[in-house]
Amino acid sequence: MRNVLFSAILLLFFGGLLYLAADLPFGDPLRTDMDDYFIRNAQAQTGANNVVTSIVFDFRGFDTLGEATVLFTAVLGVGMMFRKLKEGEEYEND
């Protein structure tokens, strides 16, 4: 009974999303003003041929700084979790 209900809800969700997706225009974006500006001016303003790189590192450079910080923090977290336990130290166990 629970499985049937679960499948029914999932199917309903699937149908709703499909209904929404059918109305989305593919291959013909609605507003392209900002992207057209980037494509026209990226070469003159940054000198880079690759427009995506010029956006990632120049127009949205601050964003990328945050992204690099996230990666750094993730590595710190992983290192903290796998650190060597001190003599006699255990995982907290109460």
Binding site: Q43, G47, T53, D58, T64
Partner: peptide
């Protein structure tokens, strides 16, 4: 990295793009 390029397709020059190669 100071060579400036005009808008449009070109063959690509490594000596362009200012700060971007350093950041890369």
């Amino acid at each position: 990295f100071r060579t400036s390029i005009a808008h449009g397709p070109n063959a690509g020059d490594l000596n362009t793009a200012g700060l971007l190669p350093l950041l890369n």
